[in-house]
Amino acid sequence: MTTADLIGKIIQVVGGLAIFAAIVGLLFFFLDKAPKRGKDYWQLVVFLAPALILVFLGLIYPAIRTSLLAFTNNRGDFNGLDNFVWMFTQPAIINTLVNTVIWVLLVPTVSTVVGLAYAVFIDKSRGEKIYKALVFMPMAISMVGAGIIWKFVYDYRQSGTQQIGLLNQVVVWFGGEPVQWLQTSPINTFLLIVVMIWIQTGFAMVVLSAAIKAVPVEQLEAAEIDGTNPWQRFTNVTLPGIRGSLVVVLTTISIATLKVFDIVRTMTAGNFNTSVIANEMYTQAFRAAEPGRGSALALVLFILVLPIVIYNVRVMRKQREIR
């Protein structure tokens, strides 16, 4: 990179921000000049329209287009359900679908359970902040970075030579033979899942920890006077108290898991039976030049997420009605 490039990049950023500010400023300037009578209307337009237009162009329209693409072949001709037939007859793709289900079952539950346990254990302890920061840190790490970190942990060297991957070293310490972790199906899928759990546990922990603190102390004290043991207090008082947060955490992690792409891509590139839908979609659409097949996979992914959307929308609706 040359200095000229750098200056160009700085100009772009500063210029971009300035133009953005100017556009927003202009919008409000015209809003002030708008006729008194329709002012409420114009106000709504100025505040809402930019976001709505962007969301429509960026998400709604493309999603519809992609849904249609799912019924075409690689030349763009309509081919009915061929792509779906292909999907459910290719052993590799069926494997991908099964993997995705394993991911979405394991990641949210394990991260939530571990995160919750951890949050309870460290609650009000000395050094709580540090404890939290340590487990939360992976959240700040990109999934590509996380992929590299864990690839290093799983690294394999021939038996007899020094291991440089921690996991194999542990196996060797216990007298075992080193294993090609990332190539050994089906354990490799679970090892990739560990990475996602590693990232998401911190998220679950932090949200649930705050929820636990919000459970009224009086209720817990009352239960204690009633002679309940800590486990009963946890299941009878704390758990119901944090139910809402649990739902949020599970939903969030499930959606994140369904979309997981970077981890698989950096660690195994989808080989050795580890592919998931989000990764396969990219492979089909871009590498294999079959956008129809890629879109069909995207559609399946969307259908998988749909129940979660519907559930959350129902909850939202209740909320908005209270207002």
Binding site: P62, T66, L69, K259, F261, A278, M281, A285, S295, L301
Partner: peptide, 8 residues
């Protein structure tokens, strides 16, 4: 899914 939106 973002993947759905990319190409269009």
């Amino acid at each position: 899914p973002l993947q759905m939106a990319l190409l269009p």
